[in-house]
Every structure is written in C-alpha cells, then in structure tokens.
Amino acid sequence: MLILVRNPVPKLRSCFKKARLLSAGARLCARFGFEEIALSLVERALGEEPHRVELHLQAGELSFKLGRMDRAVEHVRHLWPGSRAERGVFDFEAGPLRGAAPAFFKERAWILAAIGSHLLGAHEPGRALSYINRAIAAGLTHSSVLNLKGLCLLRLGQTEEALKAFQDARAAGGRSAGLLVNMGIALNRLGRYAEALRCYEEAQRLGAGGVELFNNKGFSLFFLRRYDEATACFELAQAMEPQDTVRANLALCYFKTGRVGRAIQLLKELVEKNPEDPVLLNNLALCLEAAEKHHEALALYKKAAAIGGPERNTFLVNQAACLAGMGRFEEAQKIIERLEEVAPQDERVWSLKASIMAELGREGEAVDCYRRALGLTG
C-alpha cells in the first residue's frame, strides 16, 4: 500500500512569493509616507515568512519610525541569536547579528536606538545612553532619538545636558507633547519655572493632559507663587490618579493658601505611610507650628534632623526657629552655633540669629547678623 505525501515545496514557494509582494508593497507605501499601512503589510508578510531577517528589519525600522519602541525591540530580538535575546540582554560586542556584515550597524542605526530605548525602560540609563550615542554617531539624528538621549541624561542627573538634547530634538522637528513635557521637567529642575510652564501649556494645546503634566505644571506654578492655580493642577492630577507625591504637593498648596487644617490632615496620612521620610516630617511640622501646635512641631523637626539627608540644615534651622518662637532662645542659639560651623554662608542661619538677638535686646549684634545675612560683610 502506497502512502501519498504532498510535496511542500510549491506551498513554501507560494508563501515566499506572497511575502515578497507584501514587502514590496510596504516599501512603496513607506516611500510615500504611508508608514502605518506599510507596517501592516510587513506584518502580514511575517505571517507568511516569520523567520525572514529582512522582514524583521523592515518591520522593526517602521515600528521605530512610528515611535513603537516595544515592537521595534521585539523585531530586533528575532535578529539576535541564542538565549540572550530571550532574556532581553543585548550586547553587540557579544557576537554579530544573524547574517550581518560589520557595516550593518552604521546602516541600521535605528537598532542601536531601539535597544537603547529597551535598556532605558529596564532602568539602565547608562547602558541605554551608550547605545543611543552610537546611533547618533552613525547618523541617526531623528528627534525621537535625541529625546531618548535627553531622558537618559535626565535619569542620570545631568540636567543641563538633558535640556540641550531636548532642545536639539525640538530643532530636529520634534513637536510632540511628550517632548515638551520632558523639556519642562528639565527646566523645572534647573529652577527655570516660567519657561517650564510655557512648555506645559504648549503640551496641553497639543492634547496632553495626564497626571505627570498636571503635577509638573503645578510644581512650576507653585514656585512662581501662583498658589491657587497650582492647587487646581494638583487637585486635577489627584482626581485622575491618587499619588503620594501629588498629595504632598497639594498639602503645601493648602498650607500656602491658608487651609492649614486640610494640609495637616493630608500630611498626617502621608507620614503614617512613610514615617521615616524627613521632608514629610518637616512639612507637617511647619503646618503644626502655623496651627500653634509648637510642641508637636518641635518633636517632628527633631526627628527629621535625626534622620538627616541633603536637607538636614533646613530641618535644623526650622527647629531653632520653633524653639525661638517658644521663647527657648538658649536652645535655639546652640543649634545656630553648630550651623555657623557647618554652613557659614547660609543666610537663613544669620537671619534667624539676627531675629533672636533683636528679641534679646542685643541690637548691635542683631545688626551685624543682618549684614551677614545680606552678604554685607565688608
């Protein structure tokens, strides 16, 4: 008895032919700017020929141009041999891409940028930046790549350089709301709040309106002393998605606009969740002091100073001011003497000392301290 087996070659040839036609159609669509249609055609081609390297290259590049970084990275994975791709670990020095010549990387710089985006999402901004810089060096100066570079630098704390990258992205034709929000964040960190606010407002005109935008816009407004507008932004952000950071900012706005009771309520809830956060402790103490609850405030200032951190001197100044307000001048002076040693240029120390000297009737010393606070030491 003979068993007939179908010859698979004609079907394979048919699939290959169909994939080639779809790929050619995609190239034509992309040439005329119809990149969405082009990507859908290439993905249909991949359905016919899922292992063809050139189809993954084509689909990955289109995904990258459309800003779909995750999909671009998935196509890069298909180009990468072995288990490294499965683990999501990319390292071009470990070996060549399947069937790729050394000149490949210069010709396909978008792959470097896509991997940089992947690493940034994996919280490795240093490695991400190295790939993105190589993509730029290979000639890929698209606004989305420059924006990625700015995000890496922002995560690495290099704010000036990040702002420059965002500005370069803008000059390269970047007009997205996301880019404007990123520029605003960099400007906020540099203390350029009015410029940051303009970025957020332009992003809103482009349709942006998420929690990040309203929280950062509120931050700019707060430092521009437009507290009512800042409150409105934080309340809107909080209504969209309750977040501790937004609530902490909202509490400060309530404090600045005289709604001390609401500020205390919010901050107490946050401190209960984060009892070792010295900034929250300090801010709650400020509100309690404004509500004439000096003993509670003093205990929180002491705890904040004991925890320490980069703002420790601020907590100590506030603690000394609280003691002075309670008439405990000797204890306040001891703190000020310590601060004079560690922060002799801090004008807040000399202003507080001047106030205490004036309260004690030592006018000559008070005047000298005021001069020091103003930098008039000559």
Rank of each mutant, 00 (worst) to 15 (best):
F16W: 12
L112E: 05
D228V: 10
L213Q: 02
M183N: 03
A114G: 06
K303E: 11
F315Q: 07
A171W: 00
V76G: 10
R155V: 00
R20N: 14
F255A: 15
G126N: 01
N313H: 14
A19I: 09
L339P: 05
S40Q: 10
A306F: 10
I335E: 05
N249H: 12
K106P: 04
N274M: 07
A332M: 07
E124C: 09
V342G: 08
Y131A: 03
V342I: 15
K106G: 15
R259C: 07
A137V: 03
L21E: 15
A162D: 02
L119R: 08
Q238D: 14
I307Q: 11
P102T: 03
K273Q: 09
L206N: 06
A177T: 04
Q167S: 10
L154S: 12
V342Q: 13
F92A: 11
L22C: 05
R205A: 12
N282L: 11
E61C: 11
L21P: 04
E340M: 13
A114F: 01
D168Y: 09
A305S: 13
A171P: 01
L112N: 02
A230N: 08
A343V: 14
A24D: 14
R71I: 04
I335M: 03
K149A: 10
E93A: 14
A113Y: 00
I264G: 05
F255P: 08
G327P: 04
N318C: 13
V279S: 14
Y200G: 09
E35Q: 14
L112I: 02
Q167T: 04
R52F: 08
N133M: 08
S23R: 12
L4M: 14
A373E: 01
F214K: 11
I136W: 00
H142K: 03
C15H: 15
F64M: 08
P275R: 11
A186H: 05
R77P: 11
A306P: 06
Q158N: 11
F105G: 07
I132G: 01
A251K: 07
A239G: 11
A230R: 08
R31L: 12
C152T: 00
P102V: 00
P10A: 05
F255R: 15
A290F: 04
R27Q: 13
Q265K: 14
L221W: 02
A169G: 09
S143Y: 09
E229Q: 15
Y370W: 12
N7T: 06
E359F: 09
G261D: 12
L352V: 10
G210K: 08
E212G: 03
F32R: 12
L286Y: 11
R205W: 01
L180W: 05
N7F: 06
H118L: 01
R84L: 12
A203S: 04
S83E: 12
G25I: 01
L374Y: 00
L267M: 14
C152S: 03
G157V: 09
G325T: 06
Q238S: 15
C322R: 00
Q58R: 09
A358L: 12
R127H: 05
A186V: 07
I336W: 03
A109C: 02
C152Y: 02
D168M: 12
N215V: 07
A194M: 10
R71A: 13
